[in-house]
Simulated scan of single mutants.
Amino acid sequence: MAARRRRRRLKKRTRRQLQLWGALAVGIAVVWVARHWSVVWPVLVAVLATAVVGGAGWVLLRAHRLAVGEDRAWRAQEEARVRELSMAEVDALSWQEFEAYVADLCRRDGCTKVVVSGKSGDLGADVVGYMADGRKLVIQCKKYAPHRSVSSQDMQKFVGTARLEHGADVALFVTTCRSFTKAALGLALRQDIVALHRDLLGAWAKGAHLETLMPLNGRGGGTRRRLPP
């Protein structure tokens, strides 16, 4: 107990000493500033001005970054909404009209000698033409409901005929549904088939060039989580 009381007294004494030294340091600083005020005040003003300007700049930068982030998110949602509105018109087409529509998109992007099969038994070549650089283009069109997925079986049929039967340099699988199954998309990637699902088709319909969409090949989905079918 005696040792504990001594430690407490020592702590109190040390605290009082620190307070005294602190007060002394503050007093000395006040006296020094008072004597050299003509030199100190410009420095203080400069420091305060720098702090105010820096703080204001940080606030503005933070607000700008927040506004840019919100604007990007809004633009992405708006673009998805516009694509989906354009796809509503596509959904109203018959499968024959859909094939003709895809052919028109190809012609718009500079493809030549574009022909539409318009019949069953075409061995997957619903639309055939040539890219602007001369490569032969073969397209399989599947007009499915938005909630469906292109199956591996659908993709296998197209893989088996696109190049061996039709001599395609560019094989394109276009669908109105939102996705390909994992197996179907994996097969498309391995066999160099360009897979355009609903989101990418919507972008194509709104003016994106086919050449810019081809490298995406199945990516960019997700409309289903934001918009109703």
Rank of each mutant, 00 (worst) to 15 (best):
R190Y: 14
V47Q: 11
R108E: 00
I193T: 03
A145F: 00
G134I: 03
E89T: 11
A3G: 12
V26Q: 09
S152Y: 15
G202V: 05
D199P: 12
R107F: 02
F158H: 04
L66C: 09
Q140G: 06
W21I: 14
R8A: 10
V174K: 03
W74T: 12
D154K: 06
D133F: 08
L85M: 13
E211C: 15
A203S: 08
E165M: 12
A63C: 03
G124S: 07
A188C: 07
V114E: 00
M214F: 09
S117C: 12
V116E: 02
A132V: 08
V150C: 04
L172G: 07
K11E: 14
K142V: 02
G129Y: 08
F173L: 05
P146S: 07
Q77C: 15
V26E: 10
M155K: 02
W37V: 14
D133K: 01
V194G: 09
A183D: 15
R108I: 00
V82R: 15
E211I: 14
R6N: 07
V115M: 01
Y101H: 07
D199M: 09
A205W: 10
Y101L: 10
V43L: 08
L200W: 01
L24P: 10
I139T: 02
V114W: 00
S152A: 14
V194Q: 12
H64D: 07
V102G: 04
D133Y: 01
K143Q: 00
R108G: 06
V30F: 09
R75F: 04
V114M: 02
A29H: 04
G167F: 00
I28W: 09
S152H: 15
V116Q: 03
L185D: 04
V138W: 06
T14K: 13
V45M: 08
P215C: 02
R75Q: 12
V30S: 13
A67M: 06
G22C: 08
K11N: 15
K143D: 01
R190T: 13
G221L: 08
V114C: 03
L200H: 03
Q77G: 10
E89H: 09
A3M: 14
K143W: 01
V59M: 15
K12Q: 13
A67C: 04
D122P: 01
S117T: 11
R62A: 05
L20S: 15
I139D: 09
E165D: 11
A51S: 06
L66D: 14
K12A: 15
R135Y: 13
P229Y: 02
G218N: 03
E78W: 12
L61T: 12
V194L: 09
R190F: 03
P228N: 12
V45I: 11
G129N: 08
A67L: 09
E211D: 13
R135W: 02
V43S: 09
A188Q: 09
K113L: 10
G55Y: 03
R107P: 05
Q191C: 10
V114K: 05
A23R: 13
T161I: 04
G22V: 02
W204I: 02
G167L: 06
A125E: 01
R198S: 06
K182M: 15
V174E: 05
V52E: 03
V30Y: 04
M131S: 11
M155N: 08
S86Y: 11
A29R: 01
P228M: 14
M1Y: 07
V52Q: 06
H36A: 11
R7E: 11
G222C: 09
W21N: 14
A92C: 05
L227P: 01
T223V: 12
V47P: 00
V170P: 05
K11R: 14
L60S: 05
N217T: 06
